[in-house]
């Protein structure tokens, strides 16, 4: 089924683009600075004039904070997936093409990482590295490359016995040229699908780390830390925790819907979960 004929994935894509636009234009769209403290206006509910999504415990405008929070989530998601893809696909291509001890070492390492709770791993990494967007990207990619490694390794192993690769080899082309010029173009769809589906997962991980206080520095608005701040006010001001959480769900759901549609259109073999 081509992507153009599917309704939900296209809706997902449209929503994702809206989020990206909101993140880029946040300084122009936000009615207030995201960290503006305004104690007389604290804990105002959804629908307050001037504060459509209400205000938090410091009187900051939630709409403005949610708009700026999109920047952290999208930036970390895109960068972490890109880094994971670059590292995982390169190592996977090398391991799959050459096999032998190179493959053994990388695969063992990948198994070791797979057999361990992702969150505990990143928690540890963030505790060592300290808060920050670059550190989040590093911590998430430190294990995030494994899925890309496994996919690329498997695909390269099966592709390298096909005629077009054998022909390229017979023509005397170098392994690097064969991997980059012949094999990768043939598996790029699978990689694209996996990257889309992993993006949603990594954005949830970022929000979780921020929720636990190990994400971005406290002065940067992030959805996870906004939920954490709202936790104390669940009884009196539930919207503080509800609004940023809905923002995460909306983005991740849209990414997953799009990714699933992409999978059906491009790569029906890739198992869906």
């Amino acid at each position: 089924m081509s992507l153009r004929r599917q309704f939900l994935p296209l809706l997902g894509l449209a929503v994702v683009l809206l989020y990206v636009l909101a993140a880029i234009l946040a300084p122009y769209l936000a009615p207030y600075p995201p960290d503006e403290v305004n104690l007389p206006m604290r804990l105002r509910p959804i629908g307050t004039p001037g504060h459509p999504l209400g205000t938090d415990h410091l009187g900051a405008d939630l709409l403005s904070r949610v708009l700026f929070g999109a920047r952290v989530s999208i930036l970390v998601g895109v960068l972490a997936v890109s880094l994971s893809l670059a590292v995982g696909a390169s190592l996977g291509a090398v391991a799959g093409y050459f096999g032998g001890w190179v493959d053994g070492v990388f695969s063992r390492f990948a198994d070791l990482l797979m057999g361990f709770p992702y969150l505990l791993f990143t928690l540890f990494a963030m505790a060592i590295l300290g808060p920050g967007i670059a550190n989040l990207v590093l911590a998430l990619s430190f294990k995030g490359w494994v899925e890309f490694f496994r996919l690329t390794r498997g695909e390269v192993m099966s592709e390298k016995t096909r005629e077009y690769v054998l022909a390229a080899r017979a023509l005397g082309r170098s392994p690097a040229a064969i991997i980059a010029g012949e094999i990768l173009p043939n598996i790029r769809h699978s990689l694209l699908v996996l990257a889309t589906l992993r993006m949603g997962y990594l954005i949830v991980m970022e929000a979780t780390l921020s929720f636990l206080g190990l994400g971005v520095p406290p002065d940067v608005p992030a959805w996870g830390s906004m939920v954490a701040a709202g936790r104390e006010y669940m009884v009196s001001a539930w919207w503080i925790a509800m609004v940023p959480g809905l923002a995460v769900v909306g983005l991740v759901l849209s990414i997953n819907l799009f990714g699933e549609g992409l999978r059906e259109a491009l790569d029906p073999r890739l198992r869906s979960l």
Partner: peptide, 16 residues
């Protein structure tokens, strides 16, 4: 789909 896309910390708080 919603179940896969929802962060556990937020789902927990909302259920609570």
């Amino acid at each position: 789909f919603l179940g896969i896309s929802m962060p556990a910390f937020w789902a927990g708080l909302m259920l609570m």
